[in-house]
Design a protein around this nucleic acid. Structure first.
Length: 571
RNA sequence: CGGGGUGUAGCGCAGCCUGGUAGCGCAACUGCUUUGGGAGCAGUGGGUCGGGAGUUCGAAUCUCUCCACCCCGACCA
């Protein structure tokens, strides 16, 4: 839709609202795309909605093209369906529960497996109707513990969710592969730099879950890639290969040293003049039975929560012990704990187990051990993989080294199998007339999050830089002295008509403003192309063009305006 | 939910310590001048100082309490 500024609600802010922490949130507020009403609850103003619709349209077209069928399911969902699937009890407080006037339990849908399965079991009876994939683009509600970063993690948000149904596992895999390809098409069309990564660790039989991440330094997830193969996975799932070399032999006797005030690895490394990777980091977690368990890592490594939760006896979800509890049970404060002489179950990461002559806490306040050695100063430890991989680690597929990038998760596809079809008694008759539970897949895209992620990845000091496919307007016309100069008005109006005739989302800034204001606004809202008409230029038979990423504008011949438009927007 | 912080005009802030009845910049509105990078001058409107209670002759300011929001940790698209 073409638009004149005088008829549009352009609501840009010169100053940055203080409570917006990340760039995308700041720019969305400044550009006038969204406004907040409560924590994690936003309105989309006309400008923001235009972008949201572009994202939705791309998603819709590619889903349709992949053979999925759009429908629309309710936000308000009766508790009975959730009780049937068992999730009424499993889901935490993130599920917003409520009662209607008849005191009947219900919830506002955070996702729609129950509803879609209910639809399926009523509508589909025969294998002849399979495969089928229903999808919707709809508002979800998740009562996040801490909504933050604007629409990046809001409580109410728009999601595209799709659900496939197939007769058997192989067919489910085919439906999944179709969605995988559809997602690639969708993300390609967004024009964003993204990666599809495995979100499943060592599952046999290939990947059954993939996340799609938009790459951005501010991303909350870390993604590991091989530099020599197509291996890519969320870091939380990546195996750290066990070191193959022999551990070096002890070279010095163990000693206790005073380390007053040194409570972190950084303190210790600086205070003793050693490297962090020569120190041990001992974390104390709660055990399943309420007691404590020690997790020992190399000083420069980070604990991987998913891996730790899988260790025998460690409570899941992982909970690090409270300081008071540690002092009470171990008799030593955080910062001086070490594995030697520690009387609780202890797991040592392979990296830490490989060290010799290491530094670790002495289990006495403000004291550490130096030149400690496994096997000599204590028993050989129970080892496990429990750290996050780091850049330079070998790739788990044996090819190349890992690189780490940060990403924002905007899509997730996975295979559900028969979880819901069994619990909710959804069945079809197969070719033998036998009743069978279909295999499901489920495929999500965070539509509102895509918008924020696009900004997070594409902005500069002046504002947003939209990829052309997502831009609210493809082209902005900035006439200088539109209200004073008949010449300028005529040129601008005529060009606006031409753009409109080509079906472009063109924006004509017909406000009686100084050029600087128009330019700043168009840059802030991220319009990819700008054309300027002025008395000066027109009398020299010229117009001005500047791409959003261009360093400077260029003067172009007026008689080539049509050709220029044709080249900029072919077809 | 734990830890930290903030609530004063649409936005950004000062005033609070040391009580005396609210101010600045931007934005908005009117007029004039301006028109190639967020203009100038003159004027105008807008605030239960987050809510409630208390202390006091008097509370934005002191006390208590409730609420909202933001940031850091466990969840997820």
């Amino acid at each position: 839709m073409p638009m004149r500024a005088s008829r549009f609600h352009l609501a840009t802010l010169k100053e940055t609202p203080v409570d917006a922490e990340i760039v995308s949130h700041q720019l969305m507020l400044r550009a006038g795309m969204i406004r907040r009403h409560a924590a994690g609850i936003y309105s989309w103003l006309p400008l923001g909605l235009r972008i949201l619709r572009k994202v939705e349209q791309i998603v819709r077209q590619e889903m349709d093209r992949a053979g999925a069928l759009e429908l629309l399911m309710p936000s308000f969902q009766p508790a009975e369906l959730w009780q049937e699937s068992g999730r009424w009890d499993q889901f935490g407080p993130e599920l917003l529960r409520l009662k209607d006037r008849h005191e009947r339990d219900a919830c506002i849908g955070p996702t729609h497996e129950e509803i879609v399965t209910d639809i399926f079991r009523r509508e589909v009876n025969s294998y002849r109707q399979l495969p089928v994939n229903f999808y919707q683009i709809q508002t979800k509600f998740r009562d996040e513990i801490r909504p933050r970063f604007g629409v990046m993690r809001s409580r109410e948000f728009i999601m595209k969710d799709a659900y496939s149904f197939d007769l058997d596992r192989d067919a489910m895999q085919r439906s999944y592969d179709i969605m995988d390809q559809a997602y690639i098409n969708i993300f390609d069309r967004f024009g964003l730099d993204y990666r599809a990564v495995s979100a499943d660790s060592g599952a046999i039989g290939g990947s059954t879950s993939q996340e799609f991440h938009v790459l951005a330094d501010s991303g909350e997830d870390a993604i590991a890639f091989s530099d020599q193969s197509d291996f890519a996975a969320n870091i939380e799932t990546v195996e750290a290969l066990t070191p193959t070399g022999e551990r070096a032999a002890p070279s010095a006797a163990m000693e206790t040293v005073d380390t007053p005030g040194m409570h972190t690895i950084a303190d210790l490394a600086a205070g003793l003049g050693v490297k962090a990777q020569q120190c041990l980091k001992t974390l104390i977690a709660e055990a399943e039975d309420g007691a404590l368990v020690a997790l020992v890592l190399r000083g420069d490594h980070e604990l991987n929560v998913l891996k730790a939760e899988r260790l025998e006896g460690v409570a899941s979800p992982l909970r690090l012990a409270q300081r008071e509890q540690i002092i009470k049970l171990l008799g030593v404060d955080i910062g001086s704990i070490g594995p030697i002489g520690l009387e609780i179950p202890t797991f040592v990461d392979h990296g830490a187990a490989q060290l010799s002559d290491f530094v670790c806490g002495a289990n006495q306040d403000d004291k550490h051990l130096i030149n400690a050695n496994w096997g000599r100063d204590c028993a050989e430890p129970a080892t496990a993989d429990m750290r996050n991989v780091v850049a330079g680690d070998p790739s788990p597929d044996g090819k190349g080294q890992l690189r780490i990038l940060r990403g924002i998760e905007v899509g997730h596809i996975f295979q559900l199998g028969q979880k819901y079809s069994e619990s909710m008694q959804a069945t079809v008759l197969d070719e033998q007339g036998k009743t069978t539970h279909p295999f499901m897949g489920c495929y999500g895209i965070g539509v509102t999050r895509v918008v924020a992620a696009a900004i997070e990845q594409n902005h500069d000091e002046h504002g947003i830089i939209w990829p052309s496919t997502l831009a609210p307007f493809q082209l902005a016309i900035c006439p200088i002295n539109y209200h004073k100069s008949e010449l300028v008005k005529q040129a601008a109006d005529e060009f606006y008509q031409k753009c409109q005739a080509r079906g472009l989302d063109v924006f004509l800034d017909d406000r009686a403003l100084r050029p600087g204001v128009m330019f700043s606004d168009m840059e802030l809202i991220g319009v990819p192309h700008r054309v300027v008409f002025s008395e000066r230029g027109l009398s020299a038979q010229q117009f001005e063009y500047k791409g959003r990423r261009d360093a400077s504008a260029q003067e172009l011949p007026l008689d080539d305006l049509a050709g220029f438009l044709e080249r900029l927007f072919p077809g």
